[in-house]
Nucleic acid binder design. Structure first.
Lengths: 364, 364
DNA sequence: GCCGGGTGTGACATCGTTCCCACACGCCAT
DNA sequence: ATGGCGTGTGGGAACGATGTCACACCCGGC
């Protein structure tokens, strides 16, 4: 408050370095720290901290002075500094395969809701189903010292990596490390079986399966569920009816076009996720196959369009929002109780009947 | 390495506090810090830091020793500590209205891509279009000291708040503070006008507008574009044809049911976003109105289902992914050059003709 | 008058990182 | 011999928040 006005040292005329973010612009008045609050309130930093966090003794009038100073200065505590000191983080990482897929978007929305409701922030990344990007995101999460990670894993590597770095992990939708890691899943086997049985129950015997992969967890279980339904109906599997066409609509559509044009085409299709269902549906539309008269379709995984097309697509509806929410809840449980044995939540699914199935027509 | 095996102090038998996260579990071996790396390599922290960041002199063999130690210890630098020291953050905040809406999900996906490609992480929040939650998320972003925020704003408050705290902001999709803040938008007025002109051009004169709101930015411009098209066709506006039905499908559907059952029903509808279009479409389906013969429909904002239903819905396609990406690019520009004048990017749109429009039928 | 306990406060160390500075070499030119 | 420079290294102070600890004060009881 003296005659010396140089509260802050004058910037030396340093040459600007264009590669790094500019130093705090002079137009922005430097953010208030707890020290500023303490000075304005005429107390020490410690006291200000106690007043603001509510831990420890503070006289009532001092508390009010500090709070009012904080308000005037628009003080917002620096979460990174707090984390550094307390070694406790209030962000979680969420890693999904593709935000543009409504399933993952809803899952992320549910995760975000749950995180928020517990006072956590969400770091979200999208790996496009690519293992490399998944690893990159995992590294970022570790660097940011998130409290834990919810992931729809693309490989088991990421789980190992995160656990080696002491980061609690919950697998959601897919499960690579059964028995070692918390997970939130649906009963893929049972649901796939029930869905396929809708078709066998109507008399279909030529039922194709469109699936992304059949080796891991989710895909494998859906495949097995399909097989179980066929077995129960004493239908022999035709390998050409099991189509692994990856994760993209166009590829699925191409594969479906080929399959549905053949002489020995299936009378029904079970698509193991919404992307594949979309490919099949588009192919059927392109071939002008009437659904359900000429082709029955059931999808694993509901999507908005399935209730908008005519007829609607019968689907196994997974509540992705609930899945995301449950995964975060489980993660926070784990953070609270690190040594509890791994737990798996199984979220119930619904089969929504919409009209895309009918008994097989008479085809040559 | 001596006989004293207590590398870490034994935990005193402190009573567990169930309200706070448990202290580092003994099963997790404490994360390596740069100090550990330095010790293993037999150098000081400073030298280790120089070796790892690549700034400053380090002898080649020392560098290799440090790097190898870091590898062995699986050292991952603590981004929060780095941020605290450098006062530079490598995360950005992204705040959208509703992740379950494909428009926002794609926008977020684009933002995430761009952020990642520049080495930034994305904190994502979803405010459900609620101003209070928007404020909460903004506070979290400030606390986390993100480098900047991309937001689809619900009110002008958030922009003020963030700017007062010195956080660079880019508005995307909606624009509340024209001229003061960077923004990435589409030319809503022109696009809405062109879309409406498709309808007037076919001879429609009874054209309803479904819109969320008409007071702010995006909604206002779309409304004006609609009006401009009507004016150009010398059609007088019928106020009952402008329906503000909020942000939710069911409300829009109800409103559409009412409007489309009336005697003086419109022959065409322009829906100002994908949610409203869905409501209108469902209402039309429910009333068994044939599209386009009995009702023409144009939507602002494309969505996956619009190309799957029959007929497809003619739509103004905004590339939401590009919108998100551009917003992040603009934000990073702003971070690099804080004092540049505000800039607005206008992303071009496409009108995709799909078959949901036809000349008006003969109705009483 | 002295002690003990409750109440309220400030000094200081700490978290993990970076980076400014001082210093210690070896070498060459003076 | 001495100085200066280029190279390489370590000490120590930040960054912002928290929390331990010691101390200072005031009260009542001896």
């Amino acid at each position: 408050m003296g005659q010396d006005a140089s509260v802050e040292p004058a910037d030396p005329p340093a040459p600007a370095d264009p590669l790094r973010p500019a130093p705090a612009a002079s137009s922005v008045p430097r953010r208030a720290t707890i020290k500023d609050v303490a000075e304005m309130a005429g107390v020490s930093r410690s006291t200000a901290s106690r007043a603001l966090t509510g831990r420890g003794y503070v006289a009532e009038d001092v508390r009010r002075r500090v709070l009012s100073a904080a308000g005037k200065l628009r003080y917002v505590p620096d979460a990174t500094a707090r984390h550094l000191k307390q070694q406790v983080s209030l962000s979680i990482g969420v890693l999904v395969s593709d935000l543009r897929n409504s399933f993952y978007a809803e899952l992320a929305a549910g995760a975000g809701q749950a995180a928020r409701s517990h006072g956590y922030s969400m770091m979200l990344a999208d790996d496009g189903g690519v293992a490399e990007d998944e690893a990159g995101a995992a590294e970022a999460f570790v660097a940011l010292r998130v409290a834990g990670v919810v992931v729809t894993p693309v490989s088991a590597t990421i789980i190992d990596y995160l656990r080696r770095h002491g980061v609690p992990v919950v697998e959601v939708d897919r499960q690579f490390t059964a028995g070692e890691c918390d997970a939130v899943v649906v009963d893929n086997h049972a649901a796939a079986r029930r869905a396929t049985e809708r078709l066998t129950g109507l008399g279909h015997r030529r039922i194709a399966l469109f699936i992304d992969e059949t080796d891991w967890t989710t895909g494998r279980d859906r495949y097995r569920g399909y097989r179980a339904a066929l077995d129960a109906a004493e239908i022999e599997e035709d390998p050409s009816f099991v189509v692994s066409s990856g994760w993209d609509v166009v590829a699925a559509q191409d594969a479906a076009l080929r399959l549905l044009q053949g002489d020995a085409r299936p009378t029904a299709v079970f698509a193991a996720n919404n992307v594949l269902a979309e490919g099949v549906w588009r192919a059927a539309a392109q071939l002008k196959l009437r659904i359900p008269d000429e082709l029955s379709v059931v999808s694993f995984d509901d999507a908005p369009w399935m209730s908008m097309v005519t007829p609607g697509v019968t689907a196994v509806a997974q509540d992705a929002t609930t899945l995301g929410r449950a995964a975060v809840e489980r993660l926070l449980q784990r953070v609270a109780v690190p040594d509890a044995p791994p737990a798996v939540d199984v979220i119930p699914v619904d089969i929504i009947e919409r009209g895309s199935t009918a008994p097989p027509g008479q085809i040559a």
